[in-house]
Nucleic acid binder design. Structure first.
Lengths: 237, 237
DNA sequence: TCCCAAACTTGATACAGATCAAGGAAAGAC
DNA sequence: GTCTTTCCTTGATCTGTATCAAGTTTGGGA
């Protein structure tokens, strides 16, 4: 998708209109947002924000995938969040964020300058409430991930990761038998799951051998046996 | 401390007055809260909320320590949060929570019935903002913990845990050379850090042998060399 | 079209932390 | 004060995943 397409897009036509921070806005509020917003596209691998950098813009992710990453003194890294379309970057009342934000694939953001946006939040309970909901959703996701990182085996981690992508990409559709794209390299997946890239590779292939998933190209996955996948996550039903 | 003490306590005298959800309330708002609130004390080990149970009350933790725990199908458990005085339980717009809340030590809560509290939140921007801040603080803490669970060694995990307790218990005081209490058993610490109780025990003793910490009783710790402790966490300065 | 670099797979080996096992110390019960 | 249980420590061994080390595939650029 071209940035120029977005530059002309009206909020009413936005693909993330019903899930993003603006989900509950009415026509009047959209008119205000139209004036405030600007689109920006990043190439895969680009740094969107540096840790600690004061953030000039807050933004909704419109297309693509981005990652939140932390780094230890000696270079070990851990992804602490994955941003998919409709997710929000930046928080009310916070100058900076404690992690790097990196474009995993090509990414398009719908950006608002922080100061006018915060003013809008103060005046618009809709938006403040929606921001709170998004923060609580992130908190729930972070806690599920803590369970994964602390207690799950490598196989369970990979199964949970695939299941998460199925749920989020297929949206409402209940069956996961649509082939879909892995948005990350093995190395990035390893960073997300607290593993090494070799272990990720081995476990993907183990799930393939067991007839749970199938590959059509390195990044093209199909879930062959959804029940077996769910079982392999280790989660309660 | 006796519950009866709390039953009579006025908000102005509350030990968590300046950090809890009510931090920015004025005298008028305190009067509303006084009418709404009730104290309840739980013994160590008591279940405060069950996962999925619709929660009748939201609450601030006044004294003691509580834990948020998740459990896998086969019984593996992982703590996904630790509640210390001034932390809040329950979220606006959420019926239930996705984890069990358990009293780690004896715990006293300052409770509000959910429906009237949510009404108050809608009418009082102070409180809504403070709730948002608390949620974002929790999110930051959850992300730090993801880094710990995914990438830190057992020694780094223990050092980080002790450092966290020093920072939070000593509050503003910069030097950590006050002895203090571990609020949990080795087994609970293991659940928090994604380890086993044996590994926790060994690493505590290793830090003791290395002159970083000292024990005066099983649960009484003193930080002997704060700089060495911070170094052992693996974090950036 | 071929080349090259990045991404991935596969194998061999090492090791941190889990697991299994036994005994000791503290704290509450009676 | 003694009993009993819970909590903690220490040792021996095992194992899942990291690490080290080649290869192989893939896709994009010249």
């Amino acid at each position: 998708m071209q940035p120029v397409k977005f530059a002309a897009m009206r909020c009413g036509d936005c693909p993330i209109r019903h899930r993003a921070v603006c989900a509950r806005c009415d026509e009047d509020e959209f008119q205000t947002l139209e004036k405030l917003k600007s689109y920006k596209t990043y190439a895969a691998g680009d740094m969107i924000y540096w840790r600690g950098e004061p953030l000039e813009y807050v933004a909704s992710l419109v297309t693509g995938v981005a990652q939140l990453s932390k780094t230890l003194e000696d270079g070990r890294t851990q992804m602490v969040g994955l941003l998919l379309p409709s997710d929000f970057i930046g928080r009310p009342g916070r100058e900076a964020v404690g992690f790097d934000v990196i474009a995993t694939t090509e990414v398009t953001l719908c950006r608002f300058q922080r100061a006018p946006f915060e003013k809008l939040v103060d005046e618009t309970p809709h938006i403040a409430q929606r921001l709170m909901e998004l923060a609580l959703d992130e908190l729930d996701a972070a806690r599920d991930w803590m369970m994964l990182l602390g207690r799950k085996t490598a196989r369970e981690k990979i199964a949970t990761f695939v299941d998460m992508l199925v749920r989020r990409q297929n949206g409402a559709s209940p069956n996961g038998d649509q082939p879909f794209e892995l948005p990350m390299t093995r190395d990035q997946i390893a960073n997300y799951l607290g593993l090494t890239l070799e272990t990720v590779s081995r476990q993907f292939n183990a799930l393939k051998r067991d007839g749970v998933i199938a590959f059509t190209g390195r990044k093209h996955i199909e879930v062959v046996d959804l029940a077996a996948l769910r079982l392999a996550t280790g989660d309660d039903v």
